[in-house]
Simulated assay, not measured.
Amino acid sequence: SYTGRSTCHVLAKRRIRLPKLGSIRTSKTNQLNSGRIKRYTVSLEPTGRYYLSLQVEVEAPQALPKTGRMVGLDVGVADLVISSDGVKYGTFHAPWAEKQATKWQSKYAKRKHQVTITVRQWNHNHKTVKEELNDYQNWQRAQQQKARYQAKIANQRKDYLHKLTTALVKQYDVIVIEDLKAKNLQKNHCLAKAIANASWFQFRTMLAYKCAWYGKKLITVKPNYTSQICSHCGYHSGPKPLNIREWTCPKCGTYHDRDINAAVNILHKGLKAVG
């Protein structure tokens, strides 16, 4: 990849002029009419496709109308987000693309092994065999296909998170979330893949900058004991294993869904912190 700061010009709806490269075909350049391009980056992705990234200076978006609503959000593995209102937003899944990515990952590993053996034989015998070139091309093809399916999953996940965070920012004026350290939680090898697929950090990042853009308030609180305290009477019932998803408070008898109860406690913590 390379980056330049020279002036770029939008020529048409799907045309842009770059220094040295001249006029190239692009997409979505019609959205750049109200902004000034300050920097561009051209990169070649592992998928074999070229991408143009533009840094554009635009006016800040207008604040969204106030709704007067507040919410606490608890993040999870089975459900990505659980709100204090009792709404559960599922985790992103792309079963077909994930299956294809796994299949091509296996093909890539096998073909890479074949190429390695062939190259070693060539280095030992000081001669080229016909199978070497074919194996190398197959390996490159498998690498590209694997990268394309992985990129497809990442793009679909990002699209899902964008739609979810935008909907939350439009609904609520104050959003309270846990200050989770996802990197530390991924040390649990049983949950590492599920936590990475949920993209908690990316969800929080999107939520933070969209709240700043649209004039909403984001509050972070410590996650300590949010699933152990009764949100009705405040009784601390002690730690519970992950397979316990519902429980009844032994003091006041209130029946709780574990995740919704945690989201309510997160909201209470956030409101107490801001006074």
Rank of each mutant, 00 (worst) to 15 (best):
T205H: 15
N125I: 12
L271S: 03
S27F: 13
R111C: 15
K88R: 06
I82D: 05
D135V: 05
E98S: 11
W247S: 02
K88P: 11
K240S: 08
I37L: 15
F201N: 06
A208P: 09
S23L: 09
N243E: 15
V169F: 07
H124K: 15
L80S: 02
L164P: 03
V56I: 07
Y50R: 09
Y209N: 05
C190H: 14
I153L: 03
I37V: 01
K110H: 14
Q62Y: 10
R120T: 03
Q55K: 01
G35W: 05
A196D: 13
Q150I: 01
R258I: 03
K222A: 14
A182D: 13
N125H: 12
E178Q: 02
K222W: 13
Q186M: 05
S23H: 13
R258Y: 04
L54K: 02
K193S: 11
V264K: 11
A151S: 12
I16L: 01
Q105S: 08
C211V: 05
S231E: 12
I153E: 02
H232T: 15
C252I: 08
T205K: 15
K20V: 07
K146Y: 13
Q171P: 00
K222N: 12
W122P: 01
N188K: 11
K222E: 12
Q100T: 12
L185I: 04
P61A: 10
R148E: 09
A198Y: 03
S6E: 14
V115M: 08
C252W: 10
G275N: 00
I177T: 02
V10H: 06
L168I: 02
Q62T: 08
V129Q: 10
V274D: 01
A196P: 08
R15W: 02
A263F: 00
S23Q: 10
R25T: 14
K272L: 14
I195H: 13
Q105K: 07
Q150V: 00
G22W: 11
Q144S: 08
C211E: 00
E178D: 05
H9Q: 14
V10W: 04
I153N: 01
V274T: 06
N155Y: 01
N30H: 13
T47K: 06
G48V: 00
K210Q: 02
Q55T: 15
A63E: 12
A212G: 03
F92W: 11
S23T: 14
Y50S: 06
K158T: 10
N134M: 12
Q171V: 01
C233R: 06
M206S: 09
R49P: 03
